[in-house]
Design a protein around this nucleic acid. Structure first.
Lengths: 357, 357
DNA sequence: CTGAAAGCGCTAACAA
DNA sequence: TTGTTAGCGCTTTCAG
């Protein structure tokens, strides 16, 4: 157990102030005598001293802690976001405390309460539900707050978002141009407003296709998990009509589930299938297929979040209430896209009845 | 800004104790009069009260916080570990604070200092370097501590580890049985003691092969990143002699890099290549290859860590100083393994000079 | 150059 | 059934 300032003072015979001064390296500024200083330093070197931040925080009413609440840290997007935020925080002498809520409103609620009672200096939330009553204590405290990635209807707080609508529109368009005349958009977590934006973008792209050559359908349900991905493909197979030539997945997890299901059905992934997905992972490169992936710019998102937070903490203008960050399109299997689209559907028709145009 | 207990007491005309009692729901036990209670509750309902944990912690010398220090949270293994730990913590009324150190000893050091000065009640560390001097303050504080996943030579603290040696031996053996007579073990981060264990296991498996039919080489360097994976394959290609029939990768990142490099060399992943890797990701299933993956049991690891931590916090026996948790082998493309091994090397020889046995 | 004192918000005796 | 008191360890005036 290391000593407290009081103990050091008592045991060296100096006062609290003197000890504090040398401990803080301000001995010079206040011209503490070299001897005093040396005695204290020697004592500390021997017995050790670690500052008690709890006491300090209580006194200063500042914790130097930023709270970060995410729905799911095993989602690589949030993990990267966290990493980027942490770097910024560290540079500013702040500590980032992250909690993962498993997309559970109740847990989110408790996490927020917890952070607030611990006196965080700022809060960044990727919410899993609309903020209800628990917004009140935040408001009262005028706690710096920024929302990231998702914003539910009616929420007034400042939010930093990727351009979900436009990403979806662009990727859909590219898939169509690449020969996928019929695309199934497989969505987990349709309650998520960002997913809803993507669905709107998907539909916009279809509507814009000259002559309505692009066909599409949205299959959405449940959570954002591999199992749901499997289920969505099962539902797709159960549908009447032709198999789509492209699948667009709302996340990597959904994609993984979908590919799993497709492979166990066909024994392999049909080479002509055009694959689109939100979130990028390097392993996608091993697929022989044409792949388009939307990658969010976690670095820029984190920077924007942090700048905004810092501004609030310093009482400055925090900027507009919505800030949209562009995404990047990753293109794999480029060649496939440049050649003419295959005339036949990418997936052979299953046992279900088949129509051909 | 919500009220403090003192303010509530003053403004309702009751004392601190009375207010505290009703705030804690102990009104009944101490038989606070219904009227008193109602007045206070009404006041709180109107003005709000959130307990100041900082003050509480200072008084009680207990923070209900567990610190978790990891080298890299974007590594899914650590992310899952964190999630599992968090669940256990929450159930016990504890908060898990995680910091990611990017495998940097200096950052790890600071993170530890930070957590200690903030008065965490316990610490779990997946260290990126041997613990040096900074072990001292911990020791002095007798802070509950458990090491996870890695333990450097000479470290006396309690550690929970996966069975890295045995995993490596088993997976290597299976790869050999599956027809990969010549295996390259591509390793990132060879300074990591767990990786060293794996290398030992790999070599043990080779040595055990009847008649020394299994050949192998270890190519190791740098960090655990995709780029290093690419580099390792480049080094492999630069070597004289036959191409290996199997590659074993020390992590998913290395695998991703390796596959990327192989694909850009051959335009595809040779179907006969036997792939082994530590860490599992569902997307591996889409590979047509024979794949063996070692998956660590994050759940069990987290449970063991937490139990051990709790025991220490309660002053009980914390168990043995090393605890080994078994891993699971994931087998994909089983069929390929059952058929006879192809006679020719999986990868065609590159431009480099070629030997054949 | 050094010391004394007040107080951050809470808890936990102890009194009344 | 309610009130009083003494700190937890630190920072920050204000006085010597």
């Amino acid at each position: 157990m290391s000593k407290t300032i009081d103990e050091i003072a008592r045991e060296t015979g100096y006062s609290r102030t003197t000890v504090t001064l040398v401990l803080k390296g301000q001995a010079d500024r206040y011209r503490i005598s070299g001897r005093t200083r040396e005695i204290i330093e020697r004592y500390v070197a021997e017995h050790g001293y670690v500052i008690n931040q709890t006491a300090r925080n209580l006194k200063l009413r500042r914790s130097h802690v930023i709270g970060f609440v995410v729905p799911d840290l095993s989602n690589a997007f949030f993990a990267r976001l966290m990493a980027a935020l942490e770097v910024r925080c560290r540079a500013e002498g702040l500590v980032l405390v992250t909690t993962s809520t498993s997309e559970e409103p109740a847990i989110e609620q408790r996490a927020l309460d917890n952070l607030v009672t611990r006196g965080v200096d700022g809060l960044v939330i990727a919410p899993c539900c609309p903020r209800g009553d628990h917004a009140l204590p935040l408001r009262k405290k005028r706690l710096p707050l920024v929302l990231i990635d998702r914003v539910f209807e009616g929420d007034k707080a400042i939010a930093i978002l990727s351009d979900h609508f436009d990403s979806a529109r662009t990727i859909t368009r590219e898939m169509i141009e690449g020969g996928a005349q019929d695309i199934a958009f497989l969505c987990g977590n349709p309650a998520n407003p960002s997913i809803q934006e993507r669905i709107r973008g998907f539909e916009a792209a279809l509507a814009e296709t000259a002559g309505g050559t692009g066909k599409g359908r949205v299959i959405a349900e449940g959570a954002d998990t591999i199992d749901v991905g499997i289920k969505l493909v099962t539902r797709l197979f159960a549908e009447e009509g032709v198999r789509p030539q492209g699948i667009l997945c709302s996340s990597l997890l959904i994609l993984k589930g979908a590919l799993h299901a497709i492979k166990s059905r066909y024994g392999r992934i049909p080479a002509g299938l055009v694959i689109g997905t939100f979130d990028y992972d390097a392993i996608l490169e091993v697929l022989p297929n044409t792949v388009r992936a939307i990658r969010q710019d976690e670095q820029q998102l984190a920077d924007a979040v942090f700048d905004c937070l810092l501004a609030q903490m310093n009482g400055q203008d925090a900027g507009p209430s919505r800030r949209i960050i562009p995404t990047t399109m990753i293109r794999l299997g480029e060649g496939a896209l440049e050649s003419e689209a295959p005339a036949s559907p990418a997936m052979a028709a299953g046992p279900a009845s088949v129509e051909r145009r």
